[in-house]
Write a protein that binds this DNA or RNA. Structure first.
Length: 277
DNA sequence: CTCCAGGTACTAA
DNA sequence: TTAGTACCTGGA
């Protein structure tokens, strides 16, 4: 296996914490589907042991996905603004943001609407099984995430077999538009507002999903998705005087000096586990 | 059986 | 612009 040293990370928090839905821990290793590939990885403190499939030793895939060039210490220092972030950082040190595949992330979060996490994992995996390429690793079968073209051309009744329900039409429509060039535009543009507008123009994609895609798969360091926990916290602890999604997001983006994505990730992880009303 | 889940689109004031 | 409501579906 390949080795990568001096890399502070907590794989459990980072891979199984709800950024991505395609990771499994099997034995000592984590296996994750990233687009049409698989990454296998484990850690011993700050040393990572990794392998990619079907091409072996794809360092670029590993490096991009884990964002190895981020200055983690600096980010941690920047977002450590108060007693809440201090406690969150202490408890969840090693939590990192990923750079997942944008279309996989987008489709997965479209599926997330009004579903719980086990159900999201079920549907995304079922879709992969139906429309993705088989990748065998260590005698386990994995399925690459479906290509946009496959979803764009899929029959709605086929999509429904993955139990996505009313989201099937969102998946097909969004896949069509992305495949027709919108994804290329999104990958090219760097302006936060423009990218968000492009994403939310997709059928079935609102503010929350757009922010997840930007934070988890497009490396927008200052964009954090406001889930129910973020909203509660902003209102109750930071005294934000508005319940509007845009105002809440803006508060965090100002508060964390360019690193709201990271700050939000720590904070919301902490709150989810420590909320006392 | 009823309720709910990491939201969004739609409709009516 | 803002507040309510339906929505597939499986699990609690």
């Amino acid at each position: 296996m390949n080795k990568y040293e001096n890399f502070p990370i907590n794989l459990d928090l980072t891979l199984l914490g709800g950024q991505a839905f395609s990771w499994d821990k099997i034995g000592n290793y984590y296996y994750g589907v990233v687009a049409d590939k698989v990454i296998k990885i484990k850690q011993k403190d700050n040393i990572l042991f990794w392998q990619t499939y079907p091409e072996k030793d794809n360092f670029e895939l590993f490096a991009n996905y884990f964002r190895i060039n981020e200055d983690y210490e600096n980010i941690i220092q920047t977002i450590n603004k108060d007693e809440y972030t201090e406690r969150a950082i202490k408890k969840y040190f090693g939590l990192r943001l990923l750079n997942a595949d944008p279309s996989q992330t987008l489709i997965s979060y479209i599926i997330s609407a009004n579903k719980n996490i086990p159900a999201i994992r079920f549907s995304t995996r079922k879709l992969s099984e139906m429309f993705g390429e088989t990748i065998e690793v260590d005698r386990h079968k994995f399925y690459g995430f479906p290509r946009l073209s496959a979803l764009a051309n899929a029959d709605i009744n086929e999509l429904l077999k993955s139990k996505v329900g009313f989201r099937a039409k969102y998946i097909k429509s969004s896949a069509q538009v992305l495949d027709n060039g919108l994804l290329d535009s999104i990958n090219t543009l760097k302006d936060e507002k423009e990218v968000r507008e492009m994403l939310t123009s997709l059928y079935g994609v609102g503010d929350k999903i757009a922010d997840c895609v930007m934070g988890y798969s497009l490396e927008f360091n200052n964009v954090t998705a406001m889930d129910v926990w973020g909203k509660r916290f902003a209102l109750d602890y930071y005294g934000v005087d508005s319940n509007k999604y845009d105002d809440l997001r803006t508060f965090f983006s100002n508060y964390f000096d360019g690193y709201a994505a990271w700050g939000g990730q720590f904070l919301f992880e902490y709150i989810r586990n420590h909320w006392e009303g």
